[in-house]
Design a protein around this nucleic acid. Structure first.
Length: 545
RNA sequence: GCGCCCGUAGCUCAGUCGGAUAGAGCAACAGCCUUCUAAGCUGUGGGUCAGUGGUUCGAAUCCACUCGGGCGUACCA
């Protein structure tokens, strides 16, 4: 609908031969200012050096001709054009929602394009801890959002089982294993200290007895621990309904020589230098503090080089849009990776990196520890057990990614109106209740396709339709910024409008079947939007609560 | 020290490519259930948008500085 109005305004501006300006057409905050407000005249006034109210007058005279859409066009304040939209415009959205159902809100703007979303990508050194949840849930919602905007989405997990951390893991399990025979056997200083390490050692002991006491070969420990950990990670992801299409293995980049070739390219073009036995990538001093090591003096690459090769690989696979989600602890490193790729001659403008800030978990005033190195870790599984899948998903997606998140476990656990998840889900459950009632007590032809739109004329009914009509536009906007918390803000508005409607207008009224019919349709439309929105943010639509 | 992110109601946070009277939930207070779920609705109170200065018709939003918090600043990933 908004698109239609924008087209009308654009047409008028073109006819008047005004310079093009990037004006806004926003829902008015105050009902006195109509449904929508445009600031085009204010911006034009600056350029044309004319009185903004005069320009507004010219534009609004044209707008007033569209009586099918506008009931009133007003000029207000410094030169805002306030548009009062005809109710029929909103009413006509209802049949559209009913027809499209689970497709309502889906956009085609990115049809035919392929997106790659890489997230989680936790190394298999242990189970996911609660802090990982933010990324898991955020990525789940963003992947959905991309699909709703038309992309074909590949969900990818970068599986990194090379490097020192895995040796460290093996040594940790080995030490726990050896402690079965000698309880004073030293545990590595920077070893992984969680219970899962002991479990893994127990398992190995149960299967292999004392046959692995010789420390010359830790491979078995490494492989077993790695498999154990990754199974745990995948099981947690499954609980949250996350399924990756591709697990990209870092070792493949060694096998197919991508890393070797990239290193050779850097050398050939003089982008790298050797010092103290290590290879350094020459960094742009205006953007980075100093050069970065890409191959250690031991001959092993640092994480940067494989990361560059990995992202080059993604580009070569032909994605139109490549998205990574990282925690703020990686906030600087991705810039190095992108810089390296640019040095190697690849364009990185279709790569978007989402950085989310850290999470503090709180029970009352007490914060919960999350370090992998300490014994008492709050795992993502623990969190899900404590608060449930929906609350976990909702709380992680509820806030903008780039602000710190305080996760109030007590609040998320709360099965009451204090919990913000329920406000939304309750609206859906209420509608389901109405339909249960209607099925039991009304003749089945009440659900027929014919109904009288114009019986919907209560202010709450029109308001609800206004909100519902904004859903497709909301998806388009949010899919551009990839900020799913805005969907929640929007759905809150839907729930609020519905609750108000429900409170003031009884749906099922056996005295007036025609109104009942129309209102049931409105309820169905509201349920459709809620359910579609829930699907994007990744929570369930409960029929009863 | 330097880089990135953040600072909005008692609490948790929306709003930030400049727009009209800064919003929501919770908490507090006062109302509303013989009718489809009161996990709801209605109303009241609550703000120097961290601070100072600047840019302009207009700043929570942009710029500079200051203060406060988080994360980086590894031949860890």
């Amino acid at each position: 609908m908004k698109e239609k109005i924008v087209n009308i305004i654009d047409e008028i501006l073109r006819k008047k031969e005004f310079p093009s300006v990037n004006y806004s057409l926003e829902p008015s905050k105050n009902p006195d200012f109509g449904d929508l407000s445009a600031n085009a005249a204010l911006l034009l006034a600056k350029q044309l050096k004319k009185n903004p109210r005069d320009i507004a007058k010219e534009i609004s005279a044209e707008l007033e001709k569209h009586t099918d859409i506008f009931t009133k066009v007003e000029i207000a304040g410094a030169g805002f054009i306030n548009l009062f939209v005809n109710n029929s415009v909103y009413l006509n959205v209802l049949p559209v929602i009913l027809e499209k159902q689970s497709e309502y809100g889906k956009s085609k703007i990115n049809n035919g394009k392929k997106a790659n979303l890489e997230w989680v990508s936790a190394n298999p050194t242990g189970p996911l801890h609660a802090g990982h949840g933010r990324q898991v849930c955020l990525g789940k919602a963003i992947a959905n959002l991309l699909e709703w905007s038309g992309y074909e989405v590949t969900r990818e997990y970068y599986y990194n089982d090379a490097g020192n951390q895995m040796n460290n893991l093996a040594k940790s399990v080995y030490a726990r294993y050896m402690q079965k025979f000698d309880k004073d056997y030293p545990f590595p200083e920077d070893g992984y200290n969680g219970d899962y390490i002991r479990e893994c050692a127990d398992k190995i002991f149960a299967e292999k007895g004392d046959s692995l006491k010789e420390p010359d070969n830790l491979d078995y420990f490494k492989e077993t621990a790695e498999k154990n950990n990754f199974d745990k990670i995948r099981s947690t992801l499954q609980t949250l309904g996350v399924k990756h299409d591709i697990y990209f293995n870092e070792t493949d980049l060694y096998k197919n020589k991508d890393i070797e070739k990239l290193l050779a390219d850097f050398k050939k073009m003089g982008a790298s230098r050797e010092e103290e036995g290590a290879v350094w990538l020459k960094m742009d001093k205006s953007r980075f503090q100093k050069d970065k090591v890409i191959v250690k003096s031991t001959g092993e690459p640092t994480y940067r080089l494989p990361d560059m090769a990995y992202h080059i690989n993604k580009i070569k696979r032909g994605f139109d849009y490549i998205i990574d989600i990282f925690g703020s602890d990686h906030g600087d490193t991705y810039k190095e990776v992108l810089y390296g790729m640019e040095l190697a001659g690849y364009k990185t403008d279709n790569i978007k990196v989402i950085i989310h800030q850290m999470v503090t978990f709180k029970i009352g005033d007490q914060s919960v520890k999350m370090s992998k190195r300490s014994d008492n870790v709050y795992y993502l599984d623990d969190l899900i057990n404590d608060v449930g899948v929906d609350a976990t998903q909702f709380f992680f997606v509820m806030r903008a990614a780039n602000t710190h998140l305080d996760f109030d476990i007590e609040l998320a656990k709360e099965q009451s109106d204090k919990n913000p998840v329920y406000y939304l889900q309750y609206a859906y459950a209420r509608i389901s209740g109405i339909f249960r009632n209607a099925k039991e007590n009304l003749p089945s032809d009440i659900f027929g396709n014919e109904f009288k739109l114009d019986l919907l004329n209560a202010p709450e009914e029109i308001d609800l339709l206004k909100v519902l009509s904004g859903f497709p536009e909301e998806i388009v906007n949010v899919s551009q910024t990839l900020e799913p918390h805005k969907i929640i803000t929007y759905l809150n508005g839907v729930a609020e409008s519905f609750h108000k409607f429900y409170h003031n207008n009884r749906v099922i009224n056996t005295e007036d079947m025609e109104t009942t019919k129309a209102r049931l349709k409105l309820c169905l439309a509201a349920a459709t939007v809620l359910k579609n929105g829930f699907e994007i943010i990744g929570i369930n639509a409960p029929e009863r609560m």
